[in-house]
Computed example of a mutant assay.
Amino acid sequence: MPKYFYLLPVLLMFLTEACSLPLTPSVSPMTPAPAASQTATPTEPAAVPTATIVPLGSPANPVVFALPPSLQPEQIADGKALADGLSRYTGYTIAVTRPNSYADLVADFGKGNAHLAFLPPFAYVDAYQKGYVRAILATQRFGTYVYGAQFIANTRNNFVSYYDELNGQNKADAKTALSQFDGYKPCWDDPLSAAGYVIPLGFLNENGVRTKPPAFVEGHSTVVRSIYAQGICDFGATIIDARQSPAVLEDLPDVTRRVQVIWRIEPLIPYEVVVVASSMPDDLRFTLTQTLAQLTQTAEGQTAMQNIYKIEALQPVNDDAYALFRHYVKTSGLDLSTLFK
């Protein structure tokens, strides 16, 4: 009998076992691959099971999209529609939440209970400094992604203007222009205003300018009116160019002659900053960035963005774009936790 005949039973045994092996299902790009199973042998103890890591964006571990705290019911519906669009276009599971305050939202990022949000500027700085978030998109309003500020004074106060109105450029550095305000009283917008208080204060402090206690007059137009009237304060700061407000021009037609720009702060103040949790995987972060930017170009995305955030467009960005803003928030010397609610 041929010697190969004795190998036939062994061969049949291997063929039978091979036919009984389970098939491995194909894995889609958005579906985590199943963990490989292990079969214990009689000579080895059974492996101790380990905890399964559930990928972020899966049904069991959705991306939490935090909406602004102050939304009305109809705006919340728009937020959910935006999340549904994100989920539909990316394949990831997106859940919506609405915190009670931005302070709570920053804390949620720290606890891992939020992964995506549109943060106001000071809340962004706080969350960034704590290492909770990273910026992915800049938001556009009024055709711009950042805006500036200006120092103004009444022409009768004899301050020297270092701003060229015709060319739209400063004629000196900040220290030269702002040192003349030392010992004088400013008019500020309100304690939470970036252009009307925090950033101008940061510039004054960085250049060693010490002023008298300020007057908070509530409103950029009110700052202009206060400077025009005199007797309330010696100089002030506003957005660019608050003197051109229709209401101000109607009441004070000669305002641009009576109130002059002393020096301007270049556009560096952001609107809302779209952020993700700093721990978010790169592939998920990239996908959300691209999809959110594209959603603003659709009718449903534009409607939702306008209704919730009053935003016109989004543009990819990173944290370096806001380095100057964070710097002057720091030099203002103000407690960040008091600048947002």
Rank of each mutant, 00 (worst) to 15 (best):
P42M: 03
S193K: 13
G196N: 10
T16W: 09
Y4H: 13
L15V: 06
W263M: 05
P267T: 04
K212N: 14
A299N: 03
L116A: 05
D126E: 12
S26G: 02
S193W: 12
Q140D: 12
L86C: 00
E74M: 10
P32L: 08
S337G: 05
I199D: 08
T289F: 01
V217G: 08
V255S: 08
A195M: 08
V146R: 11
H115M: 12
T144W: 08
V106R: 05
F122N: 12
S37A: 07
V259P: 04
Q180I: 14
E44C: 03
P253F: 06
A299D: 05
F118P: 05
Q169Y: 09
P22L: 08
F142Q: 15
L137W: 04
D126Q: 10
K212M: 15
Y124W: 06
L204I: 13
M280Q: 06
V273E: 06
K3D: 07
A36V: 10
V273F: 05
V248G: 09
A229W: 11
I76S: 09
T222Q: 14
H220L: 03
N100K: 13
W188N: 11
G196A: 10
F151T: 10
D241Q: 12
I262E: 04
N207F: 15
S58L: 00
T31I: 11
K80Y: 03
L288P: 05
P25W: 03
T41S: 06
C233H: 15
K80M: 07
Y309K: 00
I240S: 06
Y145A: 11
N113T: 15
Q140M: 15
A149P: 05
T139P: 10
G110D: 08
I311Y: 01
A172S: 14
P55N: 02
G57H: 02
A77W: 04
P9T: 07
A36T: 11
T39G: 04
M13Y: 09
P316H: 01
K3M: 04
T211E: 13
N113I: 08
Y128M: 11
A313P: 02
A194G: 07
G231A: 13
V259T: 03
V317A: 04
M280D: 06
Q72I: 12
N318H: 00
V96T: 15
Y322K: 08
A277T: 13
Q306A: 00
I311D: 03
V223H: 09
K3C: 02
R134D: 10
V198T: 12
A83L: 06
A237K: 10
I265Q: 03
P281K: 10
T176R: 12
Q150I: 07
G91N: 02
R225E: 15
Q244L: 15
Y163R: 12
Q38K: 08
N158S: 14
R88D: 07
D104Y: 07
Y6A: 12
V217Q: 06
H220K: 07
V209H: 10
K171C: 11
L8E: 04
S101V: 13
Y163N: 09
Y132C: 07
L249G: 01
L192Q: 15
